[in-house]
């Protein structure tokens, strides 16, 4: 479990992370989303003690990362796959890593085979492709068999097979009861991988909710109801206007936001309104995300209206 309390990072006048309060729980994949410059990487770096917070605390199972005697057995993290000596072999890199935390060297060969790099263990890490580098980074994260895993953009540079492999790996790690905290820009991927979503913008928490709730809460998720009789349409519309966020009329259809389909169906039944169609049009996570972060895009592009 990762606990952030009032976590803040300031660089001069700029506040990169602004009093973040957050609990990332075990047993599920928590997606960490936000526009570029929102403070995702800085937050992850503070959890690992690479950057020190200006204020607040970041704890892993109740203690700062640096206070765990063998931290790699507590938290495995892939923040930057390029943070290694390019002329050291993949195996040499992992052996040095294992020794730093008293992990048996036999575990190195295990994780190399888990990530599918067994054939290139002698190859220098600097000659790895982007995707192989990511796999080596993931091998490092798994090395200490940790309870908590953090990945910053893990599918960056992976081919479709690799993307799918990472997705299944995350799901299985969470299923084993581990805490999995993963940032990504690929919303379609997050929609498939994550259970819980944490969205930040300009260093502040925007949302911390289950993926389903984020999507359901979007104004892009709508109920479409078709009523052939114009009089009945008007009755239902007036009734729905009282409790929905928004009701729009288009020909013989009502497009309703903020009321679940069950409620619309029950109301129609109670009012004796004859329906020809009742459907939910779900927003994609991408649409829900764009709506959430619309106000906090750091490097926004003006859209011609």
């Amino acid at each position: 479990m990762i606990t952030l309390e009032g976590l803040t990072k300031r660089y001069g006048a700029t506040t990169a992370v602004d009093s973040l309060d957050l609990t990332i729980s075990p047993g599920r994949v928590t997606g960490f989303l936000g526009p570029n410059g929102a403070g995702k990487s800085t937050t992850m770096r503070m959890i690992l003690g690479l950057d020190s917070p200006s204020d607040g605390t970041a704890l892993v199972d109740g203690r700062p990362y640096a206070e765990w005697p063998r931290p790699l057995t507590k938290v495995g993290a892939l923040l930057d796959a390029k943070a290694l000596h390019p002329r050291r072999s993949a195996r040499g890199h992992l052996v040095a890593m294992a020794r730093s935390n008293g992990v048996p060297v036999s575990r190195v060969d295990e994780v190399l085979s888990i990530v599918g790099l067994d054939a290139v263990t002698r190859k220098r890490a600097g000659q790895f492709s982007l995707g192989m580098g990511q796999r080596l980074g993931i091998a490092g994260a798994l090395l200490g068999d940790p309870e908590v895993l953090m990945f910053d953009e893990p599918v960056n540079g992976l081919d479709p097979d690799g993307v799918r492999w990472v997705r299944e790996l995350m799901r299985s790690l969470a299923a084993e009861g581990r805490t999995v905290f993963v940032s990504s820009h690929l919303m379609s991927e997050m929609q498939l991988t994550a259970d819980q979503l944490v969205v930040i913008g300009r260093g502040r928490l925007i949302a911390d909710a289950a993926v389903g709730d984020v999507i359901a809460g979007s104004s892009r998720t709508t109920i479409v109801v078709r009523v052939p009789d114009p009089a009945q349409l008007a009755v239902l519309r007036d009734r729905l206007t009282a409790e929905a966020e928004r009701v729009e009329t288009a020909d013989e259809r009502l497009v309703v936001t903020g009321v679940p389909a069950e409620r619309v169906g029950d109301l129609a039944h109670a009012l004796g309104v004859r329906l020809h169609e009742l459907a939910t049009e779900r927003a994609s996570l991408e649409e829900a995300y764009m709506e959430l972060t619309a106000d906090s895009v750091e490097y926004g592009v003006a859209v011609a209206s």
Partner: peptide, 20 residues
């Protein structure tokens, strides 16, 4: 991932860092 059994060789940050 199979459940890996990891037994520490040495407990202690400094000796481990020296080996690394």
């Amino acid at each position: 991932m199979s459940a890996a059994v990891i037994t520490p060789r040495i407990i202690g940050g400094l000796p481990n860092a020296v080996r690394s």
